[in-house]
Amino acid sequence: MTVPTSVAVLRQRCGSVKEYARDRIFSVTRSILFETSCDSLDDSASAPAVRFRLAGAADLGALGEKPHEYDVSAKKFGFDRLQGGDSFVVGECDGDVVFYAWLMHDQIDLDQNVLIPTAEHIAYSYRVFTVEKARGRRLCGAYYTWLKRLLQEEGCKRLICRIGAGNRGSIRAHTRAGFEPCGDLWKFVLARHCTYRADRRLREWLGNLCPAEYFSSSGLLLRHNS
């Protein structure tokens, strides 16, 4: 009989407890919203070995926990998003999916399933992921170059994304791809109740972008869809 006392199992269980506490008991997290214009193309950031394409439910179903870090609940969420009209993009190298990303139209996502409608012709990029073996090849920049061309053809003007303040790698990659910060969004969790608050800079920026009814004058998110 194997007794589950290995360090890996302990780490996993501690991780689950930490996640539970963060999501349901108390936590304060900060994320940053970034924006770029779809007209600003950076042709130097191309990676010819990777082919990007819009993907569908079959591609999503084929992703696995390794190396794509896509589990069953994430897939369920993904199928739901496809039904909701979001676009799913994969980057392939020698027939393998080494990169994937999601795109939402005319609304932004301040948390999972916390959607705020925006003005039209705005795209929101989320869940951008590169598999471990393909990291460091500037796929993120190449993806955004490809994506901006696509969005230009569709008449889209601005591209937005939200990145956790601690995710330095992603912030670096997005800044390199032409994104500029628009302000901070704070999420407060206390006893399973979530509150979102935008700083002054983000509040002004969102004021031009989202219906006013979604934010109070103090930056508190008043209404969302969950």
Binding site: K76, F77, D80, R81, Q83, G84, G85, D106, Q107, N113, L115, P117, A119, E120, P211, N225, S226
Partner: peptide, 20 residues
Amino acid sequence: RPLQVRVAGGSRLWTAHMLG
């Protein structure tokens, strides 16, 4: 079908799961 929620400037698609 996904809910077609009307907002200023058009409509957005939300699935029931997105609303919990």
